[in-house]
Amino acid sequence: MTASLPPHTPVLIHEVLEVFEGVEEGVIVDCTLGFGGHSEALLRHKPHIKIIGIDKDAQAREYASKRLEIFGDRFSCVAGSFGEKFEEILQTYGEDISGVLADIGVSSLQLDDPQRGFGFHANNLDMRMDMDAYLNARIVINQYSIYELERIFKEYGEIKEYKKMASLIVHRRQKEPFVSANDLSNFLQKHFRGSHIHPATLAFQAIRIEVNDELGELKKLLESASRLKKAVFGIISFHSLEDRMVKNTFKQWTKSCICESHVYKCECGNNHSKGAIITKKPLVAKEEENRHNRRARSAKLRSFTFKD
Rank of each mutant, 00 (worst) to 15 (best):
S167A: 15
E69C: 12
D96T: 09
G275L: 08
K160I: 07
F153A: 02
G234A: 10
T32V: 14
E287A: 13
A133S: 15
L33A: 15
Q252A: 14
I146T: 05
D73V: 08
S81R: 14
G119N: 12
E40A: 15
K280Q: 14
E210N: 01
L12V: 01
S256G: 11
L202C: 08
P177W: 12
R193Y: 08
K247V: 03
T249N: 09
T32R: 12
G72W: 01
R193F: 07
N212V: 00
L149I: 04
L68G: 06
R138M: 13
T9G: 04
G22F: 06
Q110F: 11
I104T: 03
E158F: 02
I146Q: 11
M129N: 00
L12R: 05
R61H: 11
M127P: 12
E15S: 04
S273Y: 06
I169P: 06
T2V: 15
L125T: 04
I89N: 05
L111V: 05
P6S: 05
V106W: 03
M1L: 12
F250S: 03
F82Y: 15
K280L: 11
D308G: 09
T305Y: 07
R302T: 02
I141V: 11
A206F: 04
S39L: 12
S273D: 02
A225R: 09
I70P: 09
S4G: 10
E21C: 05
S224R: 11
G72I: 09
V100Q: 09
A122R: 09
F118K: 07
Q143Y: 11
K251M: 13
F304V: 02
D243C: 08
A296R: 02
Q110R: 05
Q91D: 12
I54P: 03
D132G: 14
D132N: 15
E217D: 07
M165K: 09
G80P: 09
S180I: 01
E150V: 03
V140S: 05
K56Q: 15
L68T: 06
I236F: 04
G216Q: 08
F75Y: 14
M245R: 08
G105E: 00
E88S: 07
E260I: 14
I49C: 00
A225S: 14
A166H: 08
H196M: 08
A203N: 09
D57C: 06
N123Y: 10
I104C: 08
N123W: 06
K280N: 11
I258M: 08
Y63R: 15
Y63F: 15
A296P: 00
A285I: 03
S76K: 13
L68E: 10
Q115L: 14
E176K: 13
M245D: 02
D112I: 00
D55W: 04
A299N: 05
I139N: 04
N248A: 13
R193V: 10
F187D: 04
N123P: 06
E161R: 14
A60N: 11
L101W: 03
H121R: 13
N142H: 08
K190T: 10
I139K: 10
K230M: 07
S195K: 12
E158C: 04
G275V: 07
